[in-house]
Amino acid sequence: MNTSAQKKVPPLVLIVDDDKSMRILLRQAMKKEGYQVAEAKDGEECLTVYDRLQPDIVLLDAMMPVMDGFTCCTQLQTLFAGEPKPVLMITGLDDQASVDRAFEVGAIDYVTKPIHWAVLRQRVRRLLQQFQLYKQLEEANQALQRLATSDSLTQLANRRRFDEYLNQELQRLAREAAPLSLVLCDVDFFKSYNDTYGHQAGDDCLQQVAQAIARSVRRPTDLVARYGGEEFAVLLPNTNAEGAVRVAEKICSEVKALKIAHTKSQLSTCLTLSVGVASTVFYHESSSAMLISAADKALYQAKAKGRDRIVVVPLSAPHPSVSR
Rank of each mutant, 00 (worst) to 15 (best):
M1Y: 08
N2H: 14
A5C: 08
A5D: 11
K7P: 02
K7N: 13
P10E: 06
L12Y: 10
V16W: 06
D19P: 00
D19K: 04
K20L: 06
K20M: 06
L26Y: 04
A29D: 02
K31V: 01
K31Y: 04
K32F: 01
K32M: 02
E33Q: 10
E33I: 01
G34A: 01
Y35W: 05
V37C: 02
A38T: 00
A40H: 02
D42Y: 02
G43M: 03
E45S: 06
C46P: 04
L53M: 13
L53A: 09
Q54Y: 08
Q54S: 08
D56H: 13
V58M: 06
L60M: 12
D61C: 04
A62K: 10
C72W: 09
T74D: 15
L79W: 14
K85F: 15
K85M: 15
I90T: 05
D95V: 15
D95M: 14
Q96M: 15
R101L: 14
A102V: 09
I108Y: 11
D109H: 11
V111D: 08
T112H: 05
P114L: 11
A118T: 13
R121V: 03
R125M: 09
L128P: 11
Q130F: 10
F131Q: 11
Q132R: 15
Y134P: 08
Q136K: 15
L137Y: 05
E139P: 00
N141D: 11
Q145W: 10
Q145V: 12
R146Y: 07
R146K: 11
D151V: 07
S152L: 04
N158A: 01
N158M: 01
R160E: 08
E164F: 09
A174K: 07
E176D: 03
A178N: 03
L180W: 03
V183R: 02
V183I: 10
L184I: 08
C185A: 03
D186S: 03
D186I: 00
F189G: 00
F189L: 05
F189A: 03
Y193E: 00
Y193M: 00
N194Y: 00
Y197R: 02
Y197L: 02
A201N: 03
D204F: 01
D204C: 04
C205L: 03
C205A: 03
L206T: 00
L206M: 04
V209R: 04
Q211M: 09
S216E: 09
R219N: 12
P220T: 08
D222Y: 15
A225W: 11
Y227P: 08
G229T: 15
G229R: 15
E230S: 15
E230A: 15
A241H: 13
A241M: 13
A244I: 12
A248Q: 14
E249M: 15
K256A: 15
K259A: 12
T263M: 13
L267P: 00
S268W: 13
T269S: 14
L271G: 06
L273W: 12
V277Y: 01
A278W: 04
S279P: 08
T280F: 10
T280M: 14
E285C: 04
S286T: 05
S287C: 06
S287P: 03
A294W: 01
A295Q: 03
D296M: 04
D296V: 08
A298E: 03
L299W: 07
Y300L: 08
Y300K: 08
A304K: 13
G306Y: 11
D308M: 07
D308G: 05
R309H: 07
I310A: 04
I310Y: 03
V313K: 10
S316L: 07
A317Q: 06
A317D: 07
P318I: 09
H319D: 09
